[in-house]
Nucleic acid binder design. Structure first.
Lengths: 93, 93
DNA sequence: GCCCACACTTGCAAAATGCAAGTGTGGACG
DNA sequence: CGTCCACACTTGCATTTTGCAAGTGTGGGC
């Protein structure tokens, strides 16, 4: 499997990159991601778990049943790739 | 819709980026892409049509019923984003 | 005329996605 | 103490996408 395919295996699924993009702005709570991205709640749970398993993000507990999701170093390393894609999408390339 | 979402709408579907990555190496024929990527043949047809419609690639006829697919300028502009993702996938980031 | 490579198309099963409604937990409020 | 509410999910089911496998059509070579 090529390097690109390996990357897509981790963040290639629908919503994966959008979640990471949002987290690049700082830690977010579940509800924030849900409302801001409009991602279905069950999918969000699935993706967050996948991304956590892949070491892209981790949970940080806030209060009782409230937590935030923040990127790990590996997750933050996606910044370059994601901004490049974003600029392409904006037609500035 | 954010710029990233716009980009993913075009090349975010499964196999989309892998096809573009392959075409960055030069024009390829249908059979080449099929064998090299291992993508199902019906999906390949669908993706190529979508990418052509989106202006990422175009067909160039070779012989009778043989043609090659080549990136347009817009498609070539994806190089930066795709190599960035590839490097991330390789763990070099 | 027969065969083959190439580029698809078609049919159907499996998996992913999405919507909507429900669950559980702990703090706030009275 | 009891009720209410926000938050983070979970569950059930319909829709859509993906994938496999087999078939179609076309033009050139022999």
């Amino acid at each position: 499997m090529s390097d690109l395919a390996a990357a897509l295996d981790i963040i290639g699924a629908r919503w994966g990159m959008l979640i990471v993009e949002r987290l690049l702005e700082g830690p977010q709570r579940y509800g924030d991601l849900q409302r801001d991205l409009g991602v279905p709640t069950n999918i969000l749970t699935t993706r967050l778990r996948e991304l956590e398993t892949a070491g892209v993000l981790h949970r940080l507990p806030l209060h009782h049943n409230t937590r935030a999701y923040a990127l790990t170093e590996r997750g933050l390393a996606l910044r370059e790739a994601i901004t490049a894609l974003g600029r392409w999408g904006a037609g500035e390339v």
